[in-house]
Amino acid sequence: MFLASLAALASEVAESDPTDINPVVPDEIGEIFWGAIAFFGLWILMRYVLLPPLLKIRADRRNQEIADQQAASAADEQAEQVRRDYEATVAEANSEANDIIAEARAAAEHERGEIVVAAESEIALERQAALAELESQRSSAVSGLGDDVADLAVAAASKVMDASLDEPVHRSTAANYVEDAR
C-alpha cells in the first residue's frame, strides 16, 4: 500500500520540474507571509492572553509563599515569646520558692533558737531546783545522821564503859563532832 502510493507519487514527481533550487534563498513569499502572521500572532497572544493568567497565578503563589513564610516566622516568634515568658515565669516561681524556703528556713531557725533557749533556760531552772532540793535533802540527811551517830556513839560508849552516861552532854559532844566533820 505504502509502496504503491510511493510509486504513484514518484510518477507524479517525475512529471514535475526537477530543477534544483537554492534552499538558502527564500523563494516562497507566502511562507514568510504566513510564518510572520503565525509568529506575530503567537507573540501577541503570549503577551496579552496566554501568559498573563499563568504569570499571575505564579505571582500569587509566590506572594502566598511569602505570606505563609511570614506567618510561620511570626508563629515561631510567638512560640519563642511564649517560651521566654514560660521560662521567665518558671524562673520567677523558682526565685519565689527559694525566697519562701529561705524565709521558712530562717523562721524555723529562729524558732528553733527560741525553743533551744527556752529549753536551756527551763533545764537550768530545773537543774537549779534539783540542786536546791538535793542540797536540802543532803542537809536533812546529814542532820539526821548526826543525831543517829550521836545516839549510836552514846550507846556504844555506854556498852563499852558498862555504865550509864550523861546522855544529853555526850550527845551534844557527838553532834558537835559530826557538825565539825561536815
Binding site: E28, I29, G30, E31, F33, W34, G35, I37
Partner: peptide
C-alpha cells in the same frame, strides 16, 4: 504573496 502551502500550514 499569500500562497498557502505545507510550510504555511505547519506555521
Amino acid at each position: 504573496f499569500y500562497g498557502f502551502n505545507k510550510i504555511a500550514l505547519i506555521s
